[in-house]
Design a protein around this nucleic acid. Structure first.
Lengths: 129, 129
DNA sequence: CTAGGCGTTGACACCGGCGTCAAGGCAACC
DNA sequence: GGTTGCCTTGACGCCGGTGTCAACGCCTAG
C-alpha cells in the first residue's frame, strides 16, 4: 500500500503520515523507487494514533501504545507502559477538571455580582442620564 | 511612572507591557525623550489583564474589561460587554468540563479493561514464559 | 513525446503570549 | 570621557500538529 492509499483509508493526509514516521510512530518499507510501502497492520496503527490524538494525548504519549500494538496485542492499551500513560493522563484530566470547576465558580460569582451591581445606582458604561 | 517601574509593580516584564500596548490594552503617554510614561491607573489595568489571563481569557476577550475599568467603574466586570464575555466563557468552560468528563470516563474504562486483561492469559509485552 | 497523477524531500505558516537578543539613544554619576 | 542602567524598536524562537507550496522524480496512458 502506498502512502496516498493509506492516507485516504485512514482519513488523514500524506503530510500527516510522513510526520508520524519522522517521529517514529509509523513504519514503512521502501520500494526500489523510494516510494513508501505500507503493511496492512500500519492502518491499525494510524487509527490508534488518530484516536489517541483526538483524546488529547500528545505524540510522545502515544508511542507506548503503538509499541504495544506492534508487540502483537489486540489493543494498544493493555501493556504496562500504556497503562502508566493512561494513569498519568487520568490524573491530568482530573486536575484539569478541578481547575475548570473552580474557574466556573468564579465566573458564576462574577456574573452574579455584575447583575447585582446593575440593580444598584448607575455605574456602567451605558447608563443614560 | 516608567515602564520598568510599572513592570516590577505589576509583577511582569517590560516586554509584556509593550505587547499589551501593541494590542491596545495598555496606554502610555510619552516623555520628550520617547520614554513611556504611565498613569497610576494603568497599574490597575495591568492587574486586571493579568488576572483575566490567568483565568484563561485571551487578550481579545479582555478588551471590554479594560474599557470598563477606563470608563470609571470600580470593577471591570460590571459592564454589558464584559458580562457577555463572561457568559460566553462560562458556556465554553461548561462545554470543556463536559468533554473532559467524557474523556475521563473513557480513560477509566480503558484502564479497567487493561487491568482485567492482565488477569487473563498472557497477552502483554513483558510476559515471562 | 507528453500530460497528468502519484511519489519524494525541504521549508515556511499558523496560533498566543511572551522570552530574549541586537543595536542603539538617553540620563546620571564618577 | 567612560561606565552603568534605564529606555527605544525590531525581529526570531517556542510549542505541536498540520496545511501548503516548491521543485523535482517516477510511471502510465494516449
Amino acid at each position: 500500500m502506498l502512502i496516498g492509499e493509506l492516507a485516504s483509508r485512514a482519513g488523514t493526509s500524506t503530510r500527516t503520515l510522513r510526520y508520524y514516521e519522522q517521529h517514529g510512530l509509523v513504519q514503512a518499507d521502501r520500494d526500489a523507487n523510494g516510494y513508501r510501502q505500507y503493511d496492512d497492520a500500519e492502518l491499525r496503527v494510524v487509527h490508534e494514533i488518530r484516536s489517541l490524538l483526538a483524546a488529547g494525548f500528545g505524540l510522545e504519549d502515544i508511542r507506548p501504545f503503538v509499541a504495544c500494538l506492534r508487540a502483537g496485542n489486540e489493543s494498544g492499551h493493555v501493556c504496562p507502559d500504556s497503562v502508566l500513560v493512561l494513569r498519568r493522563k487520568l490524573a491530568e484530566v482530573d486536575g484539569f477538571i478541578g481547575q475548570l470547576t473552580d474557574l466556573r465558580q468564579q465566573l458564576r460569582a462574577q456574573l452574579d455580582e455584575a447583575v447585582a451591581h446593575r440593580e444598584s445606582p448607575c455605574h456602567t458604561q451605558t447608563c443614560q442620564p
